[in-house]
Design a protein around this nucleic acid. Sequence first.
DNA 1: CTGAGTGCAAAGGCTTTGCACCCGT
DNA 2: ACGGGTGCAAAGCCTTTGCACTCAG
Lengths: 134, 134
Amino acid sequence: MKPATSQFRNSKQRQRVLDTVAHAGFHPTADWVYQQIRLEDPNISLGTVYRNLDVLYQMGKIGRVGVGDGPEAFDANPMPHYHLICRECGRVEDMPMPYMTELDRQAQQAGFSVTGHRILFEGLCEECAKRTRQ
Amino acid sequence: MKPATSQFRNSKQRQRVLDTVAHAGFHPTADWVYQQIRLEDPNISLGTVYRNLDVLYQMGKIGRVGVGDGPEAFDANPMPHYHLICRECGRVEDMPMPYMTELDRQAQQAGFSVTGHRILFEGLCEECAKRTRQ
DNA sequence: CTGAGTGCAAAGGCTTTGCACCCGT
DNA sequence: ACGGGTGCAAAGCCTTTGCACTCAG
């Protein structure tokens, strides 16, 4: 744990990691972000990408979606919301549902010290659903 | 994918893995199960434990709880239900709430091909909550 | 007797980390 | 010039897998 006084700097790499996640248009993995940035900056290292994804998450500028297996997905939207993971292609999609704070309240009333929750739906992403329907 | 005709046999190891998960009293990791069985059968291998946990899961005899980081937790109860992960000690606990099938229906109505969902609460397990309160 | 299951050890995928150097402030 | 950030490469953690052998059915 770092002291609360630690300062964050603005490196070119960190900015690029943030931009890349922000403009990905989907939920990218660390490696995808790395490959993407390498096109413009061939010297960036994968370690730096991981470190910055972590820092950006701590700063509350991005979200992260841990999906049981496979690499973690990152999210341009840091606000809590729900996801769907496609059992065909593994893609992570946002679910257009409001965050249910009442669930946390409900859990609190059951005697648990709960600070939040995550919901992961399983099914088919829009693309795979379309392909399967054919 | 194996053919649907594949047969499962009943090895001593598989039975021990099942028993160990069933009697753990909490949500054990593969390695914990391994260490536990080794006390009685020092020759069992970690690979065998992983393979059997997998088979038992496919047979619907146990559940598994993927928690973003750290090793996967296994569950003597294969029925879908919700969990809490303790942010202090990492322990996984069951949440005493009914499975909300209406969530899946709701997602279906939003146009998604959803087959189920998982909910992971974050907070403190009973023990850590108690300790913190002191 | 057949092929599912096993032990062993090596490899695999993803992520973190130690170190020396660099650069933002 | 201080200390956070970087690149590099090695290590780490958890899990899977190839192989030859064993054992359940």
